[in-house]
Design a protein around this nucleic acid. Structure first.
Ligand SMILES: NC(=O)c1ccc[n+]([C@@H]2O[C@H](COP(=O)([O-])OP(=O)(O)OC[C@H]3O[C@@H](n4cnc5c(N)ncnc54)[C@H](O)[C@@H]3O)[C@@H](O)[C@H]2O)c1
Ligand SMILES: NC(=O)c1ccc[n+]([C@@H]2O[C@H](COP(=O)([O-])OP(=O)(O)OC[C@H]3O[C@@H](n4cnc5c(N)ncnc54)[C@H](O)[C@@H]3O)[C@@H](O)[C@H]2O)c1
Lengths: 218, 218
DNA sequence: CGGGTTTAGATATTTATGTATCTAAATCTT
DNA sequence: AAGATTTAGATACATAAATATCTAAACCCG
């Protein structure tokens, strides 16, 4: 793994999709994959695929392709997904309950071991196999179980408060689905997920498409 | 609105976050906003904010800032969110049910007017105010209600099949949450949402952070 | 076995995106 | 009112990312 240049956001964002597809191919019994096939699946250029894969350190065989097992292992190692990350989720509402039970995350080394919610009707229940616990127990739970990641699925208005509790409890990585910029100490990493961003992109593409098909004169 | 350059994906992805914050400020009674404040909220540079806002065509006042009402209207118009988009959602599972009931989308001009599912236990029920309907009725429903957008929340394995039905029914925009590249005719626009991409980014940032705090020697 | 084909990986180029600098307009301060 | 401060918008520059070109290695086909 020659150099670890971590600025390439688009590449890193694409890695889970490669991983997903490679796992699928392995299940189908394939052991080698060449760039053109992956490029078709990803809907990007072949050269982009090669550059993407190269940051993991794997080398392929000219005229042949890459070994799927090697690629899977390398991507998982590059992302740190070869070791389990324990997470808690706060806000067992509609989005939270979707994430809690999502099987896909286990493949990514992410274990959401409990959810927390303020709602007394939810605390004490079990949601998709995971316990939903009252907020007052959050800090102790995080310390006892050495949780390193927090997933925020609460309304934006209270996200900063919950974030503060997470940080105080020792959590250093926060995956934030509330649309607010969280203020955190320098040693805490926050990833904000704006699902509506994709909708905006889709909307603009559609408008552009209409505009193109409309004016034949320009 | 001088020029509509639609290649700026990062800018467009950020627009919903501006919109969210601006709406919030309006509710608080503010009528003017200056770049530095937005930049702090977005956690990006001031100049990026000005460039982002400029693609909507609004002009601000030097020494003052932008009129919030104007900005909101301009962003909504730029994204086409000033007119309602009718959508159907297929796959009323964990993720699907989260999206169906999400209030935020209405602010973005998106109305999910019905969900469809293969599961006989779900078809015929009402989920968060929206009817869940059997798959056989999808095509007729889309034609009758002139639905223009489809939201895909089914397992990846069947996503292409559902996509084909959507296209056949007349849907031209597909918001795809399944991790597959869909094959569609040239006049159909697909936006693939890879939620795990954000997790990958968070993971790598964390690894890099550890690496930095570890080696003092290099 | 030999020529054509496929493909990885390196290098170079182009394009997209983010950042800095400067000017002028509005406001604030005194 | 005069100077200092804030800020938008234009221009220029720097960095990141995608794309093109080239070379050599493995394979395929006859
Ligand atoms: N639902 C979606 O499809 C969707 C999409 C994009 C973004 N989001 C964002 O995700 C977040 C959650 O959305 P949702 O639709 O799941 O909302 P929701 O109302 O269904 O769930 C919110 C949950 O947070 C809990 N909660 C509220 N305040 C709390 C507190 N102080 N401490 C602990 N728990 C608290 C509530 O009890 C509830 O269970 C929001 O910020 C929303 O903007 C949701
Ligand atoms: N749950 C999450 O947090 C999450 C996160 C990221 C991506 N995703 C993706 O979203 C998709 C859905 O995930 P989920 O967790 O909601 O799964 P799920 O199993 O909870 O829901 C899938 C739904 O699709 C329905 N369905 C299956 N086949 C169908 C068909 N042929 N026609 C119509 N409906 C059909 C099922 O009945 C079910 O209701 C998957 O592709 C998944 O990878 C989910």
């Amino acid at each position: 793994m020659g150099r670890v240049k971590v600025q390439k956001m688009p590449t890193i964002r694409r890695l889970p999709t490669y991983l997903y597809r490679l796992n699928e191919m392995r299940k189908e019994g394939t052991s080698i994959v060449a760039t053109p096939e992956l490029a078709r699946y990803m809907d990007i250029g072949e050269i982009v695929v090669r550059k993407d894969l190269s940051i993991t350190g794997v080398t392929g065989q000219p005229g042949v392709g890459y070994k799927i097992d090697e690629l899977i292992a390398a991507i998982r190692e590059f992302l740190g997904w070869n070791v389990e990350t324990k997470a808690v989720l706060v806000g067992a509402g509609s989005l939270g309950s979707a994430l809690i039970g999502y099987d896909g995350f286990e493949e990514y080394g992410l274990s959401i071991i409990a959810a927390f919610d303020r709602d007394p009707a939810k605390a004490g229940t079990v949601m998709r196999g995971r316990p939903v616990i009252d907020m007052v127990e959050l800090e102790g739970f995080v310390r006892n179980h050495k949780i390193s990641m927090g997933i925020l699925c609460v309304p934006a208005a209270v996200a900063q408060d919950i974030c503060d509790i997470m940080v105080k409890s020792g959590i250093r990585s926060i995956w934030n689905f509330a649309n607010v910029a969280l203020k955190v100490p320098a040693d805490v990493i926050v990833q904000r997920e704006v699902i509506a961003g994709g909708l905006a992109l889709l909307s603009v593409k559609r408008l552009r498409h209409f505009a193109e098909t409309d004016d034949e004169e320009e």
